[in-house]
Write a protein that binds this DNA or RNA. Structure first.
Lengths: 209, 209, 209, 209
DNA sequence: CATGAATGAGAGTTCATTCAT
DNA sequence: GATGAATGAACTCTCATTCAT
């Protein structure tokens, strides 16, 4: 029985258990909502005792923040905006949109469903979400899109609004999926390309006229 | 000697008090979320005693359902789809979009913020929302748009998806507003027309090619 | 529309309404127990409004006391003990027992069921019951039975205990009926005579030896 | 490192605490009645916090059922009916009666007083009591008494009724004791033998004639 | 570090009682 | 006198959090 059995391994185990608990929290929060979810159920689902959750997270709120960080990390895996040129403009938009849609896996939606309701009802969490996720995401996107927007002849403010419209569309689509709107579920395959066309339409409308 | 001196007046007072309580519930739910909202606070805000709430609503859940009905009623005040013709096609889309945006008053957003988080976390409420609000709204809209969609040469399924995209965009915009995204708030005036353009772009893309 | 339409009639109406309410209280108390019974249900059952109950009874406790008085009155209709002689000794016991059993109508049991549980759990009501019903009943019975007991050669204290045993037997039988013991229900016709025999056995055992 | 250090001890502690709480419940229920008794008072009396009661009992009703089980257990400790013969017939009846009276300790009466009022006012509990206690008790007694009853020349149905009369007498005596009838309290020592005589009288009356 | 029994603050809900009409 | 909407005290029960083992 070694007393210090490899400190690195220890650390990894800690990380793994944290993720186990977060995964359980994400599942239970998304199924029942933050308040109906009990620490007991999350602990059970994670295979630990109630008290153990408090070794890894200070309190229930910290679980929520842990999920926010998780979302943050998956958001950070941003698409590679580097080599955008005039030529592959349309290709770029389409691939960007495609990449965004890839977030909408069951896991991504679950995470979103776990977090969003609480964000909408908890001002502090909302502020945190705005600062830690929304703003950085838009900043990154704006930087990446700036050259395209410019060359498309869009004025910067309007370009930014268009980015927000797209983000809104994504969020709204996730919500309709959560609600289970049947027609959207049935024809989900049509959605990504239509979304890309919409983006292109807005970004190129000036040229049309 | 009338026992109930003026029964009609009585009934009106009942309706008024119900609305007072619903208004208070909407405010408190939207500020704190369904679970953090207490009956005590709702009652106080409505200017009645705790117990009085239960004279008008069976329980806390019924307050939520009452708000759903409210939303339903404001949704039912559908735009006048009657005189759509080929000529005023663009005008129609623009005015339809405009009318939709008029829902986004402080009160409309508050109501939405009160209801949505709970819908996302409560499967039963979600199902109810889908049946009582989402489906009827789409059915109405589909009927109204059918002639336009047809004449635009869109196949019905795709046309329906486009309607859902627009709805998603609305929902997403409300959420970004709730979160308080600053750029969108600042340039909100640009949003309605951009949204209308987006719709037009999608509905006419077939003609373009 | 006469202002004072016959004061006597008025008084009778008052009495009648009081009894309506008491009847309703007896029914609801016996069905649900004192605490689960609500003033609302009693009022509805009596065909009046909630508040009206409080015109006739100060509070819920007073309803219970009203029922006690009722029980008292039906108890007071004591059998005619006057002409007991040595000769008709057995006849007397049998007819006395018989009269007692006649109390066990549905209504009598209902009243008992309404009152007893509360008496067992409410010390004040219990004391009242002891003073106003139990003691007077035993006093009356003791007086009536005294000559018989004497001539039977029973010492007074023991004679009194025997009276209490009989009372206990009655109470116990009512309880078994309330509980619905099936064999007793089925062979209820055998009970009165067996009870009378039991009494006779006890009262005459001295003579046997 | 044992997680549960000594699981057997743990289990015993659980049983002990359950009994502590039941004892407290019995006391408070009997003093105030089921509804006036509050979980707070029961918990305090048992020396635990409010919430702790719910670790051991699902809800207030379960406390009542726990008491029923308790009563059941003390009832199950049935007298030894085995060696009844014609010879010791009278001895048997007297000892049986005696054993029954031994239940009437303060604790036994308290338990009865805690349960009975609720049984009389709660139909479901009543049915449970009938099935789980009354019927088994009579079945056991009938089996034990069958040979005696037979040899006494009693027809079975009547014999069964007599058993019920005796049970009724016991119940009634407990009630008179709860109510505090003074003469019975004072001369309680006379009661057991008188009860036994009564039983004997009924069971042998056929022989007399 | 893990455990899970114990805690107790706090919420929803009921209902006896009051009183303006 | 009759009504029944309004009241708010008081109760049951839940569950995040703590801490002895």
């Amino acid at each position: 029985m070694p007393r210090k059995p490899n400190p690195e391994l220890q650390e990894k185990l800690v990380v793994i258990k944290r993720e186990q608990i977060l995964q359980a929290a994400s599942a239970v929060f998304s199924e029942k909502g933050y308040h109906r979810a009990t620490i007991k159920e999350i602990a059970t689902r994670a295979g630990v005792a109630d008290g153990t959750v408090y070794t890894y997270f200070e309190n229930k709120t910290a679980l929520m923040l842990g999920l926010l960080d998780w979302l943050n990390q998956s958001d950070q895996r941003q698409p590679d905006f580097a080599q955008v040129t005039q030529d592959n403009f349309k290709t770029f938009i389409r691939s960007y949109t495609q990449q965004r849609f890839e977030f909408m896996t069951d896991n991504g939606i679950q995470l979103f469903q776990a977090i969003l309701p609480e964000i909408l009802s908890n001002p502090e969490l909302r502020a945190l979400y705005l600062e830690k996720i929304i703003k950085p995401t838009f900043t990154t996107a704006e930087t990446a899109f700036a050259p395209i927007m410019n060359s498309a002849g869009l004025e910067p403010d309007e370009a930014k609004v268009i980015l927000r419209l797209e983000a809104a569309l994504f969020v709204g689509l996730i919500i309709l999926r959560i609600i289970g709107e049947p027609h959207l579920e049935q024809h989900w395959d049509k959605v990504p390309s239509l979304t890309a066309e919409m983006m292109l339409g807005l970004l190129t409308k000036k040229e049309q006229s």
